[in-house]
Simulated assay, not measured.
Amino acid sequence: MTTQERSAAIVGATGGAGATRLTVELAATLARDGRSVAVFDASFATQGLSHYVHGRIDIDVTRLLTDDSVHQRAAMIDLGLDTPAPVVVCPAYASLERFARAKSGEAADRFGEIIRRATESYDHVLVDTPPVADNPSIAAVNAADRVAVVVPPSKRGVDTLRRTEDRLADIGAGADRVLANRVEDLDEHPVESVDVAIPRSEVTDVAGSPVCVTGETGPFAQTVATAAEAVFNTQLGIEFPRGGLRERLASRF
């Protein structure tokens, strides 16, 4: 891993692709390897990241972007995961009025700077990013060192990936990795350009997530670990059973 590959925008190619859950699982996996992780929410409309926070959210990402008196560290919430290193998140959780102000060009510039600055305090920074269509999502993509696009494993995934790649090209960016999410058959899906195919997790509710914490060795955790390695061009020191799915997936890189 180089110092240039510490942040990543995890872009959902379409609504319902599961990018938020996957972002949290990637963060937990990196923290399981002893790497501190900060996760920012660029999906202001859905507020999906806030569902993983147990307790009050006094300062959210939109306030961080619109209130000069708020320091970045004050906006970070520790998820308290069973991992050697922490995962802290800055979710979106505010009124529509503040969402609108946080989507301005000025706020987007500040968002990009916050993402870049966060890499000085954390080993990795992930940004839960919606389909690229507004200032926060564009800021996330432009500020991140890497871009990973999350697609459903279907013909719809093929179509939305093509549209996402076109939008990324419009802003001078590209997809470094493509992750097919919630795949039923890891060897059979229509998204030919996928880098890592991630199976459905047996845990589907937010209350039981993330599952990729210390001690988890199932197929889902193994493929998320491979995805984390692929996104950041790095190697993790997490122990998994030998001779199984993990080796087959890792051999692709």
Rank of each mutant, 00 (worst) to 15 (best):
A228F: 07
P210I: 00
A207N: 12
V224A: 08
V206I: 14
N233K: 13
E216V: 13
A230T: 14
V224T: 07
A197F: 09
E202Y: 08
C212F: 06
N233G: 15
Q222C: 05
N233P: 12
V224I: 15
E202L: 12
A230L: 08
A225C: 13
A230K: 14
T217K: 10
T214C: 02
L236E: 04
P199L: 08
T226W: 12
S201E: 04
E216F: 00
V196R: 09
S209V: 00
V211Q: 10
D195W: 07
A197T: 08
R200D: 06
D195K: 05
V231M: 10
A197V: 10
A225K: 07
P219N: 03
F232S: 04
G215A: 03
V224M: 10
L236W: 05
T226K: 08
S201A: 12
L236Q: 07
V203Q: 08
P219Q: 01
N233Q: 14
T214D: 14
E202C: 00
V203I: 13
G208K: 09
S201F: 02
V211P: 09
T214Y: 09
T223G: 00
G218W: 06
A225D: 09
A228K: 06
F232H: 11
D205I: 11
T226R: 13
P219S: 02
V194T: 15
V194S: 15
A221L: 05
F232N: 01
A228H: 04
T204P: 06
V194P: 12
V196S: 03
A228I: 11
S209K: 11
T217N: 08
G218M: 05
E202A: 13
E216C: 10
G218Q: 09
P199Q: 02
S201N: 13
F220Q: 03
E216K: 11
C212K: 06
T234L: 12
A197K: 07
A221Q: 04
P199C: 04
N233Y: 14
A197R: 06
D205F: 04
A230R: 15
T217L: 08
